[in-house]
């Protein structure tokens, strides 16, 4: 009796495990499968759960004669630019906030923290006006600048944590050897925060890569427009015809690099994500 109960419990548990995995993975699996099917296979009353018949036609449709390649490049420029800029600024600020004597430290941290809470929508109108005033509307630079709103505070906040975690002795040893604070930062502290920089940069990049509201509002032409709004507006030959196959192909193209990055850096991302969340 007890044995049966044990196996019943065990069975139920593994059923739940399988359910969680299928629930998490199936939608993406379905998108991948759909992207490899010809239209006849997609719009069928009895769709196959394997990519049969198999075709690369949808991928050709995404790239040939469209601006999608350009959109991808724009996303790379904007997300890469925003990540680099916030890492450079973030490292400097976080070092000062985490290691140096700086009386208004808490005030600055509070300002940065409150920025992470900011709903983007609340500054949409103000930012729109600002970008037009300075002539950065519908430019890469304008979009990068607007992304500072969420990538910079996140970077500062997480890096302050990393800097604080480093042992005091290292810094003191450097000072004893006659190093200036700037030398200490560049030669001693920065190499030690390497893993932290990678994680923080990766999370900032993902956030910028996925951003939709600003990209939708502050860009109007495909020369600047990034991937998320491009996918949202992916149209067919006529308004009545939604090219689901191509949309899925485009979705797979932008998601696969992210999924690979996340799987490779899994441990670090989970740590960075929880640190960032718990602290801000």
């Amino acid at each position: 009796m007890k044995r049966t109960l044990f196996w019943l419990n065990r069975g139920l548990f593994y059923f739940l495990v399988v359910f969680v995995v299928v629930y998490s993975v199936f939608p993406f699996y379905w998108a991948v499968i759909s992207s490899f099917k010809p239209s006849s296979g997609l719009f069928s009353p009895d769709p196959s759960f394997l990519p049969i018949p198999f075709t690369l036609e949808q991928y050709r449709n995404v790239f040939v004669g469209t601006a999608f390649g350009r959109n991808l490049l724009n996303s790379l420029i904007v997300a890469g630019g925003a990540t680099l800029l916030s890492l450079v600024l973030g490292v400097l600020a976080a070092y000062a906030l985490g290691r140096l004597r700086f009386p208004p430290k808490n005030a600055v941290l509070y300002i940065v923290l409150s920025m992470t809470m900011f709903p983007q929508i609340a500054v949409l109108g103000g930012f729109f006006v600002l970008l037009r005033q300075v002539g950065l509307f519908n430019t890469h630079a304008g979009l990068i600048l607007s992304y500072m709103l969420f990538t910079l505070p996140f970077t500062v906040w997480v890096l302050v944590g990393y800097f604080r975690g480093l042992p005091r002795e290292l810094e003191e040893a450097a000072y004893v050897d006659g190093a200036t604070p700037v030398q200490t930062l560049l030669r001693v502290m920065l190499p030690l925060t390497g893993p932290g920089l990678v994680t923080t940069g990766l999370l900032a990049f993902i956030a910028a890569w996925n951003e939709f509201l600003f990209a939708l509002t502050f860009t109007v032409s495909d020369v600047v427009r990034t991937v998320p709004p491009a996918i949202a507006f992916f149209g067919g030959a006529t308004p009545y015809e939604i090219p689901w196959g191509s949309i899925m192909a485009a979705s797979v193209v932008v998601t696969v690099p992210l999924v690979i990055l996340v799987l490779v850096f899994q441990q670090r991302i989970v740590a960075g994500l929880t640190a960032g969340a718990v602290k801000g």
Binding site: V17, V20, S24, A232, V254, Q266
Partner: peptide
């Protein structure tokens, strides 16, 4: 399982919306 649940998180919201729309 931990890896599997990271997949929905890694997918851009716009893409997940399109996937589910389909």
């Amino acid at each position: 399982v931990r890896t599997a649940i990271l997949i929905p998180w890694a997918i851009p919201t716009v893409v997940s919306a399109k996937m589910w729309q389909w």
